[in-house]
Amino acid sequence: MNILQIKSSLNGKKSSSTKLSDVIVEEIRKKYPTGILTVRDLAIDILPHFSDQHFGAFSNSQEIDALIKEDIIKISDKLIDEIQQADFIVIAVPIYNLTIPSILKSWIDLIVRAQKTFRYTAEGPVGLLSGKKVYLSISSGGIYSQGPRKSHDFTEPYLKTILGFIGLSDITTFRVEGLSIPGISETAFSNAVQSIHIS
């Protein structure tokens, strides 16, 4: 059972979302010790932001330079192949300014491709990636999973929607939150670890 771990924090080894995702990976590997782990750290292996050239490459425009198109498609195909090879996908997501890091958005923009990871039908869009379990490891200074700021949680709803759009609909979220709140931050990570269960 292969695992793909996506890291998107700019905080390196100090990142709570990354550390929590490491625990999730460890728990998966306890159940499936022979699986291969692939790690993609988006803060190190930085992907290009979506541009008109990417749009042209994905739509097979004849106006874009052939070599540029080839490079774009090659990167996208590699990222999609990593997903296709994985049985478990663990995504570490810090909340920056109430949403996901831009480096994670770049990854998403490169894997959401018509006829490759989704297609349109008369009944609507159909995701082409399925049979995979996704775990989100979300960290935040505030508390957004419940309470008065729940309406500010644009991270989990967006990720569940866009991943579901390409067929990744079996999603479980674990959170380490309240990291900037005195009286909560001290136990936030240990509480998050205790919440982890792998199905």
Rank of each mutant, 00 (worst) to 15 (best):
G164Y: 07
S140K: 01
I166E: 03
E63H: 11
K14R: 15
G183N: 02
S185A: 15
A114C: 05
S140P: 03
L42K: 03
S102M: 12
K132E: 05
F55I: 07
S76Y: 15
L179Q: 05
E70V: 10
Y96Q: 06
Y135Q: 13
I75H: 08
Q53K: 09
D77R: 06
T38K: 12
Q115I: 03
E82W: 01
I171G: 09
F58M: 13
I68N: 08
E156M: 07
Y96W: 14
S21W: 06
T117N: 01
V25W: 01
E63V: 11
T18C: 13
Y135A: 08
F58I: 07
L179I: 07
E156Y: 05
I196R: 03
I95A: 00
G183M: 13
E177I: 12
I73C: 07
I198C: 11
F165D: 03
I89N: 00
T34F: 15
P125A: 12
I46S: 10
E70R: 15
A114P: 03
I68F: 05
N97F: 11
I6N: 08
I64A: 10
L98P: 02
A66N: 10
S76K: 10
K116Y: 02
L179H: 03
I24Q: 03
P94Y: 11
A114L: 11
W107M: 08
K160A: 07
E123N: 14
S51V: 09
I162S: 07
Q53T: 06
S21G: 10
V93C: 14
A92K: 04
G167A: 12
A66T: 10
I83F: 10
L136V: 13
Y120V: 00
K105Q: 11
D52Y: 10
I46D: 04
L136M: 09
E26V: 04
L79W: 03
K150L: 15
S76D: 12
I138H: 03
P182N: 09
N191Q: 08
L10R: 09
D81K: 12
T121K: 13
F154I: 02
A86I: 13
L179D: 03
F154V: 02
I83R: 01
I108L: 15
R113P: 04
Q146R: 14
T161A: 14
Q146L: 06
S139E: 05
R113V: 12
S185W: 01
A86F: 07
S17L: 11
G127N: 11
H49P: 11
F88I: 06
S102F: 12
Y96A: 04
I83A: 00
P148Y: 11
V25Y: 01
G178N: 04
P148M: 13
V134W: 02
L168Q: 06
E27Y: 11
S199R: 12
I3A: 03
T117P: 01
P125L: 06
I103A: 05
S76M: 11
S51I: 15
G147S: 14
L42S: 05
K19E: 08
H54G: 02
S106V: 07
G12L: 10
K133Q: 14
L128N: 12
T34D: 15
S185G: 02
G147L: 05
T187W: 00
F58G: 02
R29V: 05
N60G: 01
N2R: 11
L20F: 01
Y32H: 10
K116V: 15
S151E: 15
